[in-house]
């Protein structure tokens, strides 16, 4: 079983800033971590490998700094990692991300299963998975809360819709996006942290992939962020209710029913 897990590095939530000129989130010098949902995808891949054998390959796109989250994934137990990194990929939106990612998966070759987290916690799009599935022309299972192999080539999944569940069975290859209910990601262990430095992280640029240059990076991205702002948040102004309980409840209900 050859499994590719696509991961994204996201800034730790309390350290996000906005560049007032470019309107982009500043990710330099911000501690990066693996997108939490992607950890569920890595965990699922490792469990499948424990059960069926095979190889778990991490794939990400971003600047060199993304190596640290790939290293974290290797320390969880993945076998090797590939980082798509080049100025040419910079400024990509989901469409211009899904395309080189899918080309990289084609280059890896013989991939049975592509796993992703349901969405990233920063941009919150959840779009790359279905885009990759479309480009690879394979079926997708999104928002999976349960997965199990029926046989070596058939995966049963249950996805959680809004107020309903849905069973689905796919024949591999397929793209699966996982929910956090699926599993609890394992910790990196001290020994795995040390061995993660012995596992390869290959860096691929646009020259290593078969790509249409107009479909990558900022130029290949249809969307642009025109404005970023922090919505105003009101601190809590405490309203003191009357001493008499019946009056106090009346006051309260009058206000919160508005």
């Amino acid at each position: 079983m050859k499994i590719v897990v696509c991961i994204k590095q996201v800034p730790k939530s309390d350290s996000v800033k906005i560049d007032p000129k470019t309107n982009n989130m500043v990710r330099d010098n911000v501690e990066g971590v693996i997108n939490p949902f992607d950890k569920n995808a890595i965990e699922e891949a490792l469990r499948i490998k424990d059960q069926l054998g095979g190889e778990v390959i991490l794939l990400s796109m971003g600047p060199d700094g993304y190596m640290s989250s790939l290293r974290d994934g290797l320390a969880m137990g993945a076998d090797r990692a590939i980082l798509l990194s080049s100025r040419a990929f910079g400024g990509a939106d989901t469409l211009a991300t899904g395309y080189p990612i899918s080309q990289a998966i084609k280059k890896i070759g013989g991939v049975d299963l592509v796993l992703l987290g349901r969405q990233s916690v920063d941009a919150d799009t959840g779009q790359v998975g279905p885009i990759v599935a479309e480009y690879l022309n394979v079926p997708q299972v999104t928002f999976a809360e349960e997965l199990r192999f029926v046989d070596e080539h058939t995966l049963y999944g249950q996805r959680l819709l809004d107020g309903a569940t849905q069973s689905v069975q796919v024949t591999l290859p397929a793209v699966v996006m996982v929910r956090s209910e699926l599993n609890t990601p394992r910790y990196e262990t001290p020994v795995n942290i040390q061995t993660s430095f012995e596992k390869p992280i290959d860096v691929w640029t646009e020259h290593d992939l078969d790509l249409d240059a107009t479909r990558i990076g900022q130029a290949g991205s249809p969307t642009t962020v025109q404005k970023v702002y922090a919505p105003k948040r009101e601190g809590r102004q405490t309203v003191q209710l009357s001493d008499d309980s019946a009056t106090a409840v009346k006051e309260l209900l009058a206000r919160i029913r508005n």
């Binding site: 906005i18 309107n23 989130m25 920063d122 962020v225 970023v228 702002y229 922090a230």
Partner: peptide, 8 residues
């Protein structure tokens, strides 16, 4: 984006 703390 990033929870509901930043809008774009």
């Amino acid at each position: 984006t990033y929870g509901d703390d930043i809008m774009c």
